[in-house]
Amino acid sequence: MNIFRLAGDMTHLFSVLVLLLKIHTIKSCAGISLKTQELYALVFTTRYLDIFTDFISLYNTVMKLIFLGSSFSIVWYIRRHKIVRRSYDKDQDTFRHYFLVIPCLVLAVFINHKFTFKEVMWTFSLYLEAVAILPQLVLLQRTRNIDNLTGQYVFLLGAYRALYILNWIYRHFTEPHYVHWITWIAGVVQTLLYADFFYYYFQSWKNNEKLQLPA
C-alpha cells in the first residue's frame, strides 16, 4: 500500500459517503443520475466477485463491503425511498445503460488478460468504471444547476482515479509486479472524461461563482 493508493481509496470512500449523506440528510437526489449509480453497483459487483474466495487483507475486504453496501443503498434510496424517489428526475436521466454495458462486455470478452470468467468480469468492471460517469455528466449538462454536494461528489470521484494513476506509476517503478496495460488505459480514459468537468469546476471555484457546464 502506498500513499497514492491510500489517498485514492479515501477519496473514493469520501465521494460515496458525501453522496449517501446528501441523499440521507436532505432526502433528495436532485441532480444525481440513477443510471450512473446503477452502473457503479454493477462495477463493484463484477469487480469484487472474489470478495469471499480470495482474502487479501482486512482493509481490502472492509472497503469492498463498504463500496458494495453504499452503491446498492444509493440505488435503493433513489428507486425505493418514498421521499427521495420524488426528487429523481427520470425525464432528464435518460442515458441508456446498455449503450455502455454491451460495448464494455464485448470489449472485455475480446481484450482481456486471461480468458476466464473472473478475469473477463474484472476487465469488464474496469472498462465499465471508466465510462460509468457519463450519464451523470450528461445529466449535469442538461440540468445545468449543479448543487455543491453533487459537484464535490463528481470531483472526488475523478480525483480518486487520478490518484490511482499515480499509484500505478509508483508501483511500476518500485514493485516487481507490473500494471497491466488494460488497467492503465481504462484509468487514463476515466480520468480524461473528468478533465473538462475539472476545468469548469476549477474555474467556478477560482471565480467563486456557481458551477455551470456548457450545454
Partner: peptide, 10 residues
C-alpha cells in the same frame, strides 16, 4: 515482472 500487480487493489 511476472504477475499482475493491481489484483490487491479496490
Amino acid at each position: 515482472k511476472d504477475e499482475e500487480a493491481t489484483k490487491d487493489e479496490l
